[in-house]
């Protein structure tokens, strides 16, 4: 009896939901009030973007999820969690995940740590040639990872300038000092790509800081550091959290740099290797799925449970 009752209430809930969906659809197609017409306009404005995300983003991603649980190579049939068992059971993949996470976390902290004083100097101090400095700091944003890696080779490679100068000063051989193709070199290359982006986000945050409060603190005798600590920092904290989230995402997505400096196998590099001959398409699919779910949850939770500011 109670089953029947539950079934009925479920049915009526579904019916109610269906009515609401159909109602919303009718509102959009056949608006009556001005408010409904506005909803139709909003729907029309968002539609092209939604189509692109659906066709080029969500549908391809669903195919990736499908192959990751496929029972056969190359074709999506049956259901099997073998790929995920490999991913979570094999110590090799655990190592790859661990390496990706510590490298990205470390470079994110360094990049945002550098970006705070850079944004501070650009927004608070009257520096000569400030526009030029802003242009120079922003320039590397447009450089792909492979070029960032080449920049590190130019500085710290076997023929690198810093290497050559250090070798001349210390009398050791350049090849002993070159560290571009090593894990520290990779770390520096990541920072090269991430600092300009972190700076850009924090400059936006700094532009909104209330400078009257800072001047008041200074006039009342606070030292510059105390002013920063107690007046500026609380105002830019949401921006810093936002910068941490976005820079972390940037770092996880880096791939081109790793193609040139292949010293540490991180998630994206391993993913591209899974596509090669003799590797496993299901595992590639599972890796892509795990990556997507991880960054999605990370971003959603980050934005939901912190006061992070993202976007303009």
């Amino acid at each position: 009896m109670s089953d029947r009752h539950a079934e009925n209430s479920l049915l009526s809930t579904l019916r109610g939901l269906a009515t609401r969906v159909v109602g919303a659809f009718e509102t959009v197609v056949n608006p009556v009030t001005e408010r409904e017409r506005e909803y139709r306009r909003i729907a029309a404005l968002c539609a092209p973007f939604a189509v692109l995300v659906l066709v080029a983003g969500l549908y391809p991603l669903s195919e990736v999820v499908r192959i990751s649980v496929s029972a056969a190579q190359y074709r999506s049939v049956g259901f099997s969690l073998d790929a995920y068992a490999t991913l979570f059971g094999d110590p090799y993949y655990r190592q790859v995940a661990f390496d990706s996470l510590w490298l990205t976390t470390g470079t994110t902290l360094v990049s945002v740590g550098l970006a705070i004083p850079i944004a501070h100097a650009l927004e608070k101090y009257d520096l000569p040639g400030e526009d030029l400095l802003v242009t120079l700091v922003s320039f590397p944003i447009s450089l792909p990872g492979i070029v960032a890696a080449f920049m590190i080779l130019v500085l710290f490679g076997n023929n690198g300038v810093v290497t050559a100068v250090a070798a001349a000063l210390t009398g050791s051989r350049p090849t002993d000092l070159a560290f571009a193709v090593s894990v520290p070199g990779l770390f520096v290359a990541f920072v090269y790509s991430m600092v300009p982006r972190a700076t850009l986000i924090l400059r936006g945050t700094y532009a909104e800081v209330d400078s009257a409060a800072e001047e008041a603190a200074q006039a009342l005798g606070a030292t510059p550091f105390e002013t920063f600590r107690h007046v500026t920092l609380p105002q830019i904290r949401p921006g810093i959290t936002g910068a941490l989230i976005l820079t972390f995402r940037t770092g996880l997505a880096i791939f081109g740099t790793l193609v040139v400096i292949q010293t540490l196998v991180v998630w994206t590099l391993q993913l591209s290797r899974e596509l090669g001959v003799g590797y496993d398409v299901q595992v590639a699919g599972a890796m892509a799925t795990v990556y997507f779910v991880f960054t999605f949850l990370f971003t959603v939770l980050g934005l939901r449970y912190t006061s992070a500011e993202v976007g303009i």
Binding site: E38, P60, L252, G285, Y291, T295
Partner: peptide, 30 residues
């Protein structure tokens, strides 16, 4: 405009959905 879900539409439109490598794999499959 103001509308329900505006914040989410904003977040989806200004944050990259997936990085190039993942999208590449997805395109090869789909």
């Amino acid at each position: 405009y103001e509308f329900p879900g505006r914040e989410w539409v904003n977040a989806v439109s200004v944050l990259p959905l997936v990085p190039g490598v993942i999208l590449g794999v997805a395109f090869l499959r789909a």
